[in-house]
Design a protein around this nucleic acid. Structure first.
Length: 382
DNA sequence: TTTGAGTCAATACC
DNA sequence: GGTATTGACTCAAA
């Protein structure tokens, strides 16, 4: 019991059942999509869907905070926790823990992992079980490693190499061989897409076509990028709302504690963080008509191909904003146009919030236009 | 058909 | 080795 360091009081939703299966039995538990049966979490015969439907409103932030705490304190990884308890992969768990959406914004399906977390937290023995599983996994791994070494397998054949043809690992399924390589967008491409997003968060098919051809990307990649970007921006806005509300009402530090987004969003990986795009200020007073969005995307990529008004190296958005931003380099809402990183490092919270609001406004405008059945705005005014 | 929500999984990062 | 990021995908709703 000593190993269970920080499992404290349950967070509200109690597991209804009390029967506990014998500890251990990890069996096939480590595949995403096959979380531990609910009975293992202490619930009764209710299905998870039923439990979600019946669940009272849960504090997703408190739950994820607690889960993070417990995982950290007990040295349990996201992968094991996700695959065993939630039936999700490590990446999904990371995302959920780092950016939990408020309960009311979640669909029934989206609430499921939180109910599972809550159930898991409600019984301290669950942590011990997971730790047992971890030990068993390690044992099994060592065993495999040992046997593969004694079989004189090529180095580490048990590990995926990414190159099936040359490794000693088993032949992959034909479908794996055909798997498409992941597209990795270059920073300039992302920058260009973000710029296009600023001007039109919902580009027309024509704009998408243009963007794709100008950036030399597949249209599906551009479409996906816009989908993902909108979705992630929306999510960040939810978080900001919560944080603002929390701090407004003397907010619990716990809500903020888990949030690493934004404040250190200039870390290079997505220096802008998912938030950054909204971060790009709305361009000056007028956003160019629709298809201009595509055109606006190009300079960063091919300075030689387009008019030199916005040079590749120039801080994005600068040239367009200059008429309005003036020498101060401020955009429509008064925050710095260029180098969002620099801006946010000066006043990270303030500027990022403003940026998000600006982008949010852009989205609202789009919807209003849509509602008004305006196909393409010739001019956007505020 | 488009969009949002949720997720996977490759890969970048620490 | 664990975690974070992100392009792609599935599914459901409008």
């Amino acid at each position: 019991m000593e190993s269970v360091k920080s499992l404290g009081e349950p967070l509200g939703l109690q597991a209804s059942g009390s029967e506990q299966p014998p500890p251990g039995e990890p069996s096939e538990g480590s595949q995403p999509g096959t979380p531990l049966p609910l009975s293992s979490l202490g619930s009764s015969a209710l299905s998870i869907q039923e439990m979600v439907a019946m669940s009272p409103e849960l504090d997703t932030y408190a739950i994820t905070k607690k889960v993070k705490e417990v995982l950290t304190d007990n040295n349990l990884g996201q992968r094991l926790f996700g695959e065993t308890i939630l039936g999700l992969t490590q990446g999904s768990v990371s995302d959920l823990l780092a950016r939990p959406k408020p309960w009311h914004k979640l669909s029934l399906k989206g609430r499921e992992p939180f109910v599972r977390m809550q159930l898991w937290l409600s019984d301290p023995r669950n942590v011990e079980k997971l730790m047992d599983m971890k030990r068993m996994e390690k044992k099994a791994y060592m065993k495999r490693r040992h046997s593969s070494v004694s079989d004189a397998q090529p180095v580490d054949s048990a590990l995926p190499t990414g190159d099936y043809a040359q490794s000693g690992s088993p032949q992959p399924h034909p479908q794996q061989q055909l798997k498409k390589p992941r597209v990795v967008l270059a920073p300039e491409e992302k920058e260009a897409l973000k710029r296009a997003y600023q001007q039109k968060p919902y580009p027309s098919p024509k704009t998408i076509e243009e963007l794709a051809s100008q950036l030399n990307l597949k249209t599906s990649t551009v479409i996906n990028w816009f989908h993902n970007y909108r979705s992630r921006i929306r999510r960040e806005l939810f978080i900001e709302e919560i944080q603002a509300a929390a701090s407004g009402e003397g907010g619990s530090p716990s809500v903020r504690a888990g949030k690493t987004v934004d404040t250190d969003s200039c870390d290079g990986a997505e220096s802008d963080g998912p938030v950054e795009g909204r971060g790009r200020p709305l361009q000056a007073d007028k956003v160019p008509p629709t298809e201009e969005a595509a055109r606006a995307a190009t300079p960063a990529l091919s300075p030689g191909q387009t008019e030199p008004t916005t040079s590749a190296g120039e801080a994005p958005g600068t040239s367009q904003a200059s008429p309005h931003g003036g020498p101060s380099g401020l955009g429509l809402f008064g925050f710095p146009e260029a180098t969002p990183c620099a801006a946010s490092s000066r006043n990270p919270k303030d500027s990022s919030l403003r940026k998000k609001k600006a982008a949010n406004l852009n989205n609202i405008i789009h919807r209003l236009e849509k509602a008004a059945s305006k196909e393409e705005p010739s001019e956007w005014e505020f």
